[in-house]
Structure formats: structure tokens, C-alpha cells
Design a protein around this nucleic acid. Structure first.
Lengths: 336, 336
DNA sequence: TTGAAAGCGCTACCAC
DNA sequence: GTGGTAGCGCTTTCAA
């Protein structure tokens, strides 16, 4: 069933059918009804390739992330997918893993698919020396980065102020008398650096010394985090609070502490199910995907319609208080 | 840059370029090199729409699930996406939520995109009265269902034997002296029914009575599961083991039991991060996505190449033992 | 081994 | 308001 068949059965030309298909104005109500009836009856749907050929667009956006199996990316993808479909866009998903060359290649493949826009979720940019592929890509298609940064023309960045969030946490722990704050982190992605810098700057602004031994890099694994904290405890390295770049790591730390029957304030990151499920439940920083993702799609639509969009937006994070740490009273009032 | 440009710069016709692009045989090595050089030099990539128009295929498969934010679906999508990209297919993702009409519509939209195949991950089929859309879809395109069932021509089902897994768990708990096994479940999807039936059949084959009060349906939420179990305890309804259709629910039950300082065997389902993170860690049934997903992609390729594939495959589940329950010794030997 | 040309199904411009 | 038609970029058949 093609547009020709529909035209024939309706007794009009394909031009008219096409007009109707595309909501064109210059069609009499009568013909419109007639043609629509035929379309309905025959269950006709336009060939998307032919349409794509003509319009050089297929209403599709590419989503790039390292791994949807990870809860953080999964949530982002989930929200983006919903928003995009709602707006009539299809979603092409690429999970690239961590190797820069794979990311590069995936982006390239996405562009070959002639997508209308690309959204990168998080990124290991800062570990890469060369971001020229982003620059190139942005010349061909609007490029959006959620929780990442790349200052090229055509690139729109939307991020959560993780740096500020970590700083604030340090300050709050300090206010509550904590002086030796352990910080666990894993990958040094853009986001990873933001948080680590936040930790460092937080210490500094509280007048606390930077202690190499208290900033511990581990694998992104419950057991490695647990192992690392356990070793610290065994070695007698003192600390009186724990922060992590990821709920999973916080949970690992918690397990180690429990084994030693030590209770300390713990603050995780990402406000994931893990934070809820841990016992006691973990206070955690919400990275605002619920806000960032719909906002990004909004910008995308605006840009695609020929409008303008800020090329960088930063949103404050939000501490979700659970059992392992609460803000002091005056702080709460301040927030209220 | 089109195929015409390449042809011109190479001093050949577009037919020859096309042949080379498609790995055609009847081209002299000399011309091939010449043309490939031009392609490389100009960074030419074929227009995917034009190609799609000609071939009526775009090497793309549609993935349909209820929600990628859920760890189970996320894992499946992650594995499938990897396998498919590796085989040269692109992935169109649709998350439909739970409403049947939305699923239906998503499937329809996917078909309009002229995908080469569709994979449904899990499904609430059994709650729907009408699966005719699946039947229709399968006529147009190979349809695969992971952990779901629909016996129509053209539909290939690949599932994990969750029914058997739950039955075995009941038997094992029975062997260890448990007589009142609580079962928590949430959605009655195909998979949900499989497990519930497994519970029922497990009881029966052990000669245990079915007790309405011990099969409890809850929301898919940590807190609702906790609440439900807590209420049971408050009401004095006795049970001596807990099984759940989802690790999250098992974790909720665990929280309630802990609050009452009761320790019982607990078996979760899905072998997720939550099972690992819980304290004590949850023994859980692995639903074998690591096996099912690559296998499904294998069948898909075979079918697309014109081969045959079994229209139904079932794989045994695997109990992953952690702290909340261990198999008895003789059972272990049997497995070895 | 190569080229010419006929589609593939649709959009959009130009006439009427 | 409607129809004719020239592309869009590629694949593939048929001749040469």
C-alpha cells in the first residue's frame, strides 16, 4: 500500500494525499474526509524511508550513554525516552562502555543514521584528550550533554551542580563536628571530577587539611568499597564520616563499618534504590535527573524549531535525608 | 556528498560505487581501491533513507519493555543492545508502561518505522484479553518475546523457567523444615503468574496447604512490602520463611523482620544489586538474562537470514546463594 | 567488469 | 483547491 494506491482509491492525486498526510491547509474538507476514510480503511501508513529521503529527517534522536544497566543511566534514559516519544520522536539507544574510541565510533554511527539530535548522558570527557569528535558532531546536528561539559558551538550542556552539593555536604558535616571525612569515588568522569573537586574545595573552605589517605578511589563495586573501607579501619586510619560518589560505594562502606560495629554519618550519591534499601537507609544526593532530562528535551525541541537555547544550564542538587545523616536544625530552617 | 559525487570523482558510474559499497563481487580490485580511496578521502557515508527505500530495511530492531528504569529491564536492554550493535543492528527503544493500549500503540509505531524485528521484554500478556496485535505484528516482522508467551505463528519465545525455580525453592525450604512460607508478589504479568503458580504447585507437591493469608500481593515498592509484612507480624499471622517475586520486595520484608528482630530464610528474585546490598545479603533467583538475551539475538539473526528457529525455548533458573538462605548439603552435592 | 536507467515512496514546487 | 512532476540517493536489472 503506497500513496499511489491511496490516491487512486480516493480519486485524487498523490499530491493531495501528501498534503493531507502532512496536515497541509489547502485541502477542502470534503476531499480530506474522503481520503482519510480510504487511509483508515486500508490501514495505510507512509513509508518512513521515502519520507526521510524527502525531508532528510526521520524524527529520531540518538541517546548515548556508557551503560543502561547502571541505575543512574537507566533512569535518565527512561525519562528521556518518555519525553521524546511524547513529543513524537523516536529513540535510538547506544551504550558505549567506557572506551573513548567506542564512544567516538558510536557517535559517528549515530550521525550516519541521520538522527535529528543527539543527547549524551554523562561522559568521560575529562579523561579524554581529544573531544574533536564532539565538535565535529555538533556541526552536523544539535548535541546535548547531560551532566557533562564540552564548550563547542552547537553543544548544549545541562548539568547538576554536583560540585556545590559535595561542598555543602562537607560544610554540613563540619558543622556537626566532623573533621576527618572519608571520600570514596570511582570513575573520574566529568561528574567524578566535579564531585572530587567539591570535596577538596569543601575541605578547604572549612579550613580542613587535604589528606591523601581519606580520598580513596575504588572500583564501582559494593565489595571493593567494602574492602577498601575495611582496610582503612584495619590500618587504623581514623575518619568520622563517609561520603561517596555513588550510593553503591556508600553501601559498601556501610557494610564495612557495620562489621566493625561502628556508626558514622554516611552520605551517598544519586539517591538510588540502593540508598533506600540499605539498612539503615542512606542519606543521598539527588542528581535531579527528573528535572534535567525533561528540561533538556524542552531545549531540544526549541532548538529544532529554530529557536535559541542557553548553551549551559546548571541546576542545584538536593540532599535527600534518610537514616545515615540529617541536616542540623538551623540548616533546615535556612532551607525552609 | 552523494553516491554521484563519489562516482564522478572516481571516474566510474554510481552502479559501480554501489556494488563496492555493498561488497559486490563483480568489481576489479583496481576500481575498488580507487573508489574506496575517494570514499575515505571525502568521508562519504551512504544516505540511510535512500538505502532503506531501496532495500526496504534499515538494519534496526525495536525493543519494547515496560520501563528501563527498572533494573531487570535495564539489564535486558543493556545486553540486547550490546549484542545487536555488535551484529550491526541499531536499537529503537520503546518503554510502554503498563497500560495495554500503550503497549499496543508502541508496537504499532515500531512497525511503522519498518524495523527488521521486534523484541518484547517481559509482558503483561496474561492480564490482557486481546493479544491480536501481537498476532498481527508477527505477520509483518519477526517477533521475539523474552520471558513472555504468545503462541502465534511468527512469534519466538525465550523464557526462564521461573515456575520451576519457585517450586524448587519451596521444596528446599520444606526440606529444611519450613512449613509456612510467605510469598510476596506484585504485578501479575506472565512472569508474575509463572512464579505464583510455581509457589502454589510447590506447596502442593510438598503436601503443604494453600493459605490465602500467605500469598500477599503488594505494590512494587520497598515500603509497601515492608508495611505488608509488618502488618502480618502484628496480626500474629505465623510464617517461617519468605519468598518474593522481586528482590525489592524481599528487601522490604527483610526490613520488617529486622524491626521485629526476627531472622528467617528469605529468597528474592532477579539476583539484582539490591540482593547484594541488603544486609544480610539476599539469596536470590537469577533469571538468566545473561543467557536468554544473547540467545535471542542469535535466533533473530538466524531467522533474518532465512533460517529456522525453535518457537519456544525455556532455560532453567539458578539460585544464587547469599546470607539469607543456603541449600542443604545433599542438595548441593546433587547439583555438583 | 562496467554503465544506463528504471524504480523505491514521498515531498514540494509550480501550474492551473 | 488540485494535479503534474522533478527531485531525494540508493539498489538492481539488463545490456554492453
Amino acid at each position: 500500500m503506497t500513496i499511489y494506491d491511496v490516491a487512486e482509491k480516493s480519486g485524487v492525486s498523490i499530491a493531495t494525499v501528501s498534503r493531507i498526510l502532512n496536515g497541509g491547509k489547502n485541502v477542502s474538507e470534503k476531499t480530506r474526509q474522503k481520503v482519510l476514510a480510504v487511509i483508515e480503511e486500508e490501514g495505510y501508513t507512509p513509508n518512513i524511508f521515502a519520507r526521510g529521503l524527502g525531508l532528510d529527517s526521520i524524527q529520531m534522536v540518538g541517546l548515548l550513554c556508557t551503560d543502561v544497566a547502571d541505575a543512574y543511566y537507566a533512569k535518565a534514559v527512561s525519562i528521556l525516552e518518555n519525553e521524546l516519544h511524547q513529543k513524537g520522536f523516536d529513540v535510538l539507544l547506544y551504550c558505549t562502555g567506557n572506551r573513548p574510541e567506542d564512544k567516538k565510533k558510536s557517535l559517528q554511527m549515530l550521525l550516519e543514521k541521520r538522527v535529528d539530535a543527539v543527547i549524551l548522558i554523562g561522559s568521560a570527557f575529562r579523561e579524554e584528550t581529544d573531544n574533536s569528535h564532539l565538535e565535529q558532531a555538533a556541526k552536523q546536528v544539535p548535541l546535548f550533554i547531560i551532566n557533562g561539559l564540552a564548550e563547542f558551538p552547537g553543544v548544549t550542556c545541562v548539568a547538576c551542580d554536583e560540585h556545590g552539593a559535595v561542598m555543602q555536604n562537607v560544610a554540613e558535616l563540619y558543622k556537626q563536628g566532623r573533621r576527618r571525612i572519608l571520600y570514596l569515588y570511582d570513575a573520574l568522569t566529568y561528574s567524578g571530577f566535579q564531585k572530587l573537586d567539591g570535596y577538596r574545595d569543601g575541605l578547604q573552605s572549612c579550613g580542613l587539611p587535604w589528606d591523601e589517605a581519606l580520598a580513596v578511589r575504588v572500583e564501582k563495586s559494593l565489595w571493593d568499597a567494602k574492602r577498601a573501607v575495611f582496610e582503612l579501619l584495619e590500618e587504623g586510619i581514623a575518619f568520622d564520616a563517609v561520603m561517596a560518589s555513588e550510593d553503591l560505594l556508600a553501601a559498601g562502606a556501610q557494610k564495612a563499618l557495620q562489621q566493625k560495629e561502628i556508626t558514622l554519618p554516611i552520605i551517598g550519591f544519586n539517591n538510588s534504590l540502593i540508598a533506600e534499601c540499605a539498612t539503615p537507609s542512606l542519606t543521598s544526593v539527588d542528581n535531579m535527573l527528573d528535572t534535567l532530562c525533561p528540561y533538556t528535551v524542552g531545549l531540544l525541541l526549541r532548538l529544532l524549531k529554530g529557536g535559541e537555547a542557553p548553551n549551559k544550564t546548571v541546576v542545584s542538587a538536593k540532599l535527600v535525608e534518610r537514616e545515615t545523616f540529617q541536616l542540623s536544625e538551623d540548616k533546615k530552617e535556612e532551607t525552609t
